[in-house]
Structure formats: structure tokens, C-alpha cells
Deep mutational scan, measured.
Amino acid sequence: MTYKLILNGKTLKGETTTEAVDAATAEKIFKQYANDNGVDGEWTYDDATKTFTVTE
């Protein structure tokens, strides 16, 4: 399945997608991606749209 991440960081904003077997796997990938890019904030997930959002 395709999952989407919306980044609302102070210095980085944008979107990315990943292919993952489930939401938990996608979350791990996205949290590593956000960490690698210096984004740390409040996480939400919308199962209907398979979208994670992180807001600093």
C-alpha cells in the first residue's frame, strides 16, 4: 500500500510517499525520514487517506 507523509516543519515543508505492508511499517519509515531531516513534532494519522502528518 502507498502511504503519504505531510511535513509541516519549521524549516522543512512538503510531502513524500512510501510503499509499506502496513501503517506501522510506514510510520517507522516516515519517523526516520523526519528525524533525518530535523523535523520533530506532533504526529497524526488518517486511516481513511493513509496519510501521516507531522507538525512542529
Rank of each mutant, 00 (worst) to 15 (best):
T55F: 15
D46H: 10
A48W: 12
G9Y: 11
T44A: 11
T11H: 12
F30L: 05
T18R: 04
Q32D: 09
G41V: 02
T53W: 06
V54F: 05
V39Y: 06
T16W: 14
D22V: 03
A24Y: 11
Q32K: 09
F52P: 00
T44G: 05
L12V: 15
T51W: 03
K10F: 15
D46E: 07
G14E: 14
T49K: 11
L12K: 04
T2F: 15
T53Q: 09
F52K: 00
K4L: 10
A24N: 15
V39T: 04
G14H: 14
K13Y: 15
V39Q: 03
E42P: 05
Y45T: 01
T17G: 04
T16Y: 10
F30V: 02
T11R: 05
T51S: 06
A48E: 14
K10S: 12
N35L: 13
N35D: 10
I29Y: 14
D47N: 06
V39H: 04
V21S: 12
I6T: 06
A26Q: 01
Y45H: 02
K50H: 13
D22Q: 04
F30K: 00
T25Y: 09
Y33M: 07
K31N: 05
F30A: 01
Y3P: 00
K28V: 14
D46S: 06
W43F: 05
D47K: 10
I29G: 03
F52S: 00
L5Y: 02
K13T: 10
F30P: 00
K50N: 13
L5G: 01
L5H: 00
D22W: 03
L12D: 10
L7Q: 03
G14V: 15
A26H: 00
K31D: 02
G9A: 09
T53V: 08
K50G: 08
E27F: 11
T25L: 12
K31H: 08
T55R: 06
D36E: 14
A34D: 01
K10L: 14
D46I: 05
A26S: 02
T11Q: 15
A23E: 10
T51A: 05
Y33R: 03
D47R: 09
M1A: 11
T11M: 09
A48S: 15
G41T: 02
T53H: 06
K50D: 03
K10I: 08
E42R: 10
A26K: 00
A20E: 04
D22S: 08
K28N: 15
K10T: 15
D36G: 06
A34R: 01
A23D: 07
